[in-house]
Nucleic acid binder design. Structure first.
Ligand code: MN
Ligand code: MN
Ligand code: ZN
Ligand code: ZN
Lengths: 143, 143
DNA sequence: TGTTATTATGATAATAACTTTCATTTTCAA
DNA sequence: TTGAAAATGAAAGTTATTATCATAATAACA
């Protein structure tokens, strides 16, 4: 889904919730949609402030909360104590591998792992609704 | 490893670091070693205070930090914003599945998943040193 | 066994990320 | 155009964690 399509989806979501549209929210969302990292609120705020210096942290916070609720952003907690947000992946769910030295994050998909997770859960009488799989180690550059 | 063996290991670790032994630390460690849950600092403090009401949160915090550094405790962060500690597993590494309704935690081991993780990492040029796998869902009682 | 340097303790303060509050501004349906 | 409802931004509140500091306990050694 491209940025403009996402902006439309956001617009619909806002309408459906009886909310009002604002320039700040639009700009924050647009900036986020155009980012391709796992971005923290501070980082996003910094980006946004380059064009709109008077925007507040709280607005960025609330916008990302809204996007997450609306299914337009995914929040992630890696080990660093900060929530990070990423755009919806183009091709379904993915997990992460993080370099403990340079913090580089690589993404991967492994259908077999996903299946084994479900199986394992089933054996224990659980039904999985989501999961968190993070590998930590050294990337090729830091090994 | 049983509790007394762990206490000995702790004693060695303390000596090797040039630290001093104290009744508080011993009692906190012993209490932790005898617990078989994924226990938070608050919970551990509560237990400890039953016999030694004047023990402080900071001492429990520092003791668990010490145990973790010394390899006698594992710290875990599940989704609830609190660090939890667990004893060394009797039979190697395990991962967790957590009920989102009642917070029940089940443990599992799956060698195949572990292997697939290493493989996946290797393909991306990473060397894995640790990982985090948590499944979230409904337990049999909450389904 | 006393002395004393070093470490530990517990109360309290500081930190940091997140979340809420509130006075003011903005939006938008009527 | 108007006014009720929502949004904003600054500031305050929250919560778990970590640090500080005055005092107490430990232990090497004279
Ligand atoms: Mn990702
Ligand atoms: Mn466990
Ligand atoms: Zn790296
Ligand atoms: Zn349950």
């Amino acid at each position: 889904m491209n940025t403009s399509k996402k902006m439309e989806t956001l617009k619909s979501y806002i309408e459906s919730k009886g909310l009002k549209s604002t320039a700040q929210r639009d700009y924050i969302a647009d900036t986020f949609f155009k980012s391709n990292t796992h971005i923290s609120l501070e980082e996003l705020l910094k980006k946004v402030k380059r064009k709109t210096p008077n925007i507040g942290y709280a607005t960025v916070y609330r916008t990302m909360k809204l996007l997450t609720e609306g299914g337009l952003a995914i929040s992630r907690q890696f080990g660093d104590g900060q929530t990070r947000y990423e755009n919806l992946p183009e091709y379904g769910h993915h997990d992460h591998i993080i370099c403990v030295k340079c913090s580089k994050i690589a993404e991967f998909q492994n259908q077999k792992i996903e299946e084994l997770q479900s199986e394992t859960a089933k054996k224990l009488g659980f039904t999985v609704i989501n999961h968190k799989l993070e590998l930590y180690g050294y990337c090729s550059g830091c090994a």
